[in-house]
Amino acid sequence: MIKPKFISMLSLPSKISLLVFLLFIWRNEPTNAKEDIQYDINADAWVVMESETGKVLLDKNMNKQNFPASITKIITAIIAIEERELSEIVMVSEHAQNTEGSSLSLKAGDQISLLDLLYGIMLHSGNDGAVAVAEHISTNETDFAQKMTSFVKSIGAKNSHFTNASGLPNNEHYTTAYDMAIITRYAMKNAFFKEMVQHKTYNWDEQLWRDTLMTHEKSEAKEYGIAWEGKPKIINHNRLLGLYEGATGIKNGFTHESRYTLVGSANRNGSELIAVVLKSANVDTAYKDIITLLDEGFRIKKASSDQVKRINEEVSTNNVVEESVLDNSNSKETESNSTIPIENQIIYASILGIITFLILTFWVKIRSKK
């Protein structure tokens, strides 16, 4: 423990230097959580990132390339939001109608607002809707996929490449957990995107409410515990919104090639984290993985915050408690002893820092062996 009286004898610059040194040493302690959590995660690759700073708190194989499946639609959506007006009307093509996989039951010739399509692809994960958006922006899906790849590289996602707007498997369609965290962090800065991915349901256009879509959504509502009113309404497939307190999104995905992928986010006490898991074995392990990672990420955040608070309490002159009544002789003695040359202060702070470092290093080694 740093003695308050000793700290009171240091000048303000020396106190600041000591605080910075201790923060540098102590900030690394929580990263040992990586060693413990590896065995609790089923996914092949994962990462936890601070939304505000982009700092990685936890990771495994975060730069390993994997198939993303429908979390691809995060890129499709943010490009559309930034480049077009939500009120624009999109014409559905035959190519979009025939897209395999999850579907909004769109038909060639359907006209639908870009706003509705974005909710349809992010909540219901409609592949046909994703293709319709791509063709609306870039004429054809291939050109749009090139735009997707260029876009993500421009924001720092260097190890991703896309060949379609929906996430259907292709050997040249891949990403990494780290890249998806970067992409998601960027997208969540957009107010509309952030609001959209928090919706559990969305009222659908009655003209496009077909029997196949209604049957599917009725089943989804029952599975997710959402009251079914019989009205045209699409259900968000992201179960995290109902499983995790403070969840703020974002998107799940699945193909046989990718297995289960999931990008989740949550806010706790004003701090938001983004977690990504790629290639988890099944839907249950994917959500268990993301919940474990978010819990551990918030634990690390709290531990770091508590450490900073403890250091500030030690260093702050407001916490230095001196005797309120001193006789004249003691006052003079204290005054004479409290004046330490700056050179000695630097030496004292350096020695104290080294001792603190050795103690913490020894402590961390003991913890890692437990």
Rank of each mutant, 00 (worst) to 15 (best):
I2V: 14
I2E: 12
L10G: 01
V20D: 15
I25P: 01
I25R: 04
P30A: 07
N32G: 15
N32D: 11
K34C: 09
Y39K: 13
N42G: 08
V47D: 02
E50Q: 13
E52D: 12
E52T: 12
T53H: 10
V56R: 06
L57D: 02
L57F: 02
Q65W: 04
F67C: 14
F67K: 09
I75H: 02
A77E: 03
R84L: 12
L86I: 10
V90A: 04
M91A: 15
D110M: 03
L115D: 12
D116A: 06
S125D: 05
H136S: 08
H136G: 05
E141P: 05
E141A: 07
A145F: 01
M148T: 03
K153H: 12
I155H: 04
I155Q: 04
N159A: 11
S160I: 05
S160G: 06
S166H: 05
S166V: 03
S166C: 09
G167W: 00
L168K: 01
P169G: 10
Y174S: 05
T175D: 02
A177Q: 03
A181D: 02
I183M: 05
Y186N: 00
K189A: 09
F193T: 00
E195V: 08
H199F: 10
T201E: 07
T201F: 04
D205Q: 11
W209R: 02
R210T: 02
T215D: 14
T215F: 13
T215S: 15
H216A: 14
K218T: 09
E220I: 15
E223C: 11
E223L: 15
Y224N: 07
Y224T: 08
I226E: 00
W228K: 02
G230S: 06
P232K: 03
I234T: 04
I234V: 12
H237V: 10
N238H: 09
L241M: 08
Y244C: 05
Y244M: 07
G246W: 00
A247K: 01
Y260K: 05
L262K: 05
L262P: 01
G264V: 03
G264S: 09
A266C: 09
A266M: 04
I274V: 13
K279F: 05
V283F: 10
V283I: 15
D284R: 11
T292S: 14
T292E: 11
D295M: 07
G297V: 03
K301E: 15
D306E: 14
Q307N: 15
Q307R: 15
I311H: 06
V315D: 01
N318L: 15
N318F: 14
V320A: 14
E323Y: 07
V325M: 11
N330F: 10
E335P: 13
S336E: 12
E343I: 12
I346C: 08
G353S: 08
I354V: 13
I354T: 09
I355C: 12
T356C: 11
T356F: 14
F357G: 04
F357V: 06
L358T: 08
R367N: 13
K370D: 10
